[in-house]
């Protein structure tokens, strides 16, 4: 009996979270005329392939370009950002220097500032350098991840023993080499967590590209789909493209999670206790 309650709760939660995705999948499989008139949660004519073909062909395949942009913005920023956060957190955990706590506290304060609030100041700064509407205007600000630094510091403090560092120093290994060959491996589960957090944060940071970019070929997929969605009243054909595009655009996220969920769970756990 004790098992039934959690199962019911979990089942309800799963249902609740999966139903929008199911809806999206069903909707993306319909042709436009069927979409309006048929039940939203079951298939009518299965036109998913047509929709996909139309989506990928529309305006010289601009959608694929957006997907690529998203992967580059997000994957690139998450990868570089994770390395930066790891190095920073590691340094804060393992080296003693003046102002260490002050720096850490400032970074910790950064966790509290939502990315949304920074978009406009960033726009004004990039305007000074005439660098708005460029790849870098979205990529560079996305590298920063104070929460990652926090996690990396906590995890480095717990998982990298000082004795090991001393041993490697005695063996003549430089600090940078030690970090990349020894410490970063010990921190690996935390790095995956940081990477995933960062990946999701950048993928979802919609306001920054909205404010920075005007060149359609630079849009990430979120902004591109949103742009189409605001034009649906004017060009109703876009509705099916938006729906199909939304379905395609969640695929990379789903893949990232399925591949990395093992680490994600570990990292969450360790972040919580230590």
């Amino acid at each position: 009996m004790k098992r039934v309650t959690p199962m019911v709760v979990m089942g309800a939660a799963t249902f609740y979270f999966l139903i929008p995705i199911w809806w999206l999948f069903v909707a993306a499989s319909k042709s436009r005329s069927e979409f309006t008139g048929t039940t939203p949660l079951w298939f009518a004519d299965f036109a998913l392939t047509d929709n996909l073909g139309e989506l990928f062909a529309y305006r010289d395949g601009v959608f694929l370009r957006w997907m690529l942009n998203s992967v580059v913005y997000t994957g690139g920023a998450a990868l570089l950002g994770t390395i930066l956060a790891a190095m920073c957190g590691y340094a804060l955990a393992k080296y003693r220097f003046r102002g260490r706590e002050a720096i850490f506290n400032v970074i910790l304060g950064g966790v509290l500032v939502p990315a949304t609030a920074l978009a406009l100041p960033l726009f004004l700064i990039f305007s000074r350098f005439e660098a708005t509407n460029t790849f870098w205007s979205v990529f560079l600000p996305s590298l920063v991840n104070p929460f990652g630094v926090y996690l990396a510091r906590i995890y480095a403090g717990a998982s990298v023993p000082d004795e090991l560092l001393e041993a490697s120093r005695l063996d003549g290994s430089g600090e940078i080499r030690t970090f990349f060959t020894i410490s970063s491996r010990l921190m690996f589960p935390a790095l995956v967590t940081i990477f995933l957090f960062h990946f999701v944060a950048v993928w979802n940071n919609f306001l920054l590209p909205l404010i920075m970019l005007g060149e359609e070929r630079l849009f990430p997929v979120t902004l591109g789909l949103y742009t189409w969605n605001t034009q649906v009243n004017q060009l109703p054909e876009l509705r099916m493209l938006v729906l199909t595009g939304a379905l395609v655009s969640i695929v990379p996220l789903v893949i990232a999670f399925l591949l990395l969920q093992r680490f994600w769970r570990n990292g969450l756990g360790s972040g919580a206790i230590k």
Partner: peptide, 17 residues
Amino acid sequence: QTGPNGNGGTYANFFNQ
């Protein structure tokens, strides 16, 4: 240059710009 429709964000962008 393009973007969402006016009230969807482009007007706000104009003011920022």
